[in-house]
């Protein structure tokens, strides 16, 4: 999918969790992505991180280490 769309989806999730206490918010973003994002989408997110994560919400950037790496290929 277009990087813009992926960024928007990730940031929407961050927006919801912003009203939580900080650590809970970071964990919430990561959990949500782990639970609902298929490996292809997470792979694309990791690509975005690798390219500097432009446009991504701070919470999404912080959640990076808690997001499950992609092991299988599509």
């Amino acid at each position: 999918m277009s990087p813009d769309k992926l960024v928007r989806m990730a940031n929407q999730i961050a927006t919801f969790f912003r009203s939580k206490p900080h650590d809970e918010g970071v964990a919430g973003v990561a959990d949500h992505i782990n639970n609902f994002w298929e490996p292809r989408m997470r792979a694309q997110l990791f690509d975005l991180y690798a390219q500097g994560g432009e446009g991504l919400d701070a919470l999404v950037i912080e959640a990076r280490d808690k997001i499950r790496p992609v092991t299988q290929s599509a």
């Binding site: 999918m1 769309k5 639970n35 609902f36 298929e38 989408m41």
Partner: peptide
């Protein structure tokens, strides 16, 4: 692993 949702499938 979770699978693709309809909009994700189309993407």
């Amino acid at each position: 692993e979770p699978g693709l949702r309809i909009p994700n499938m189309l993407d």
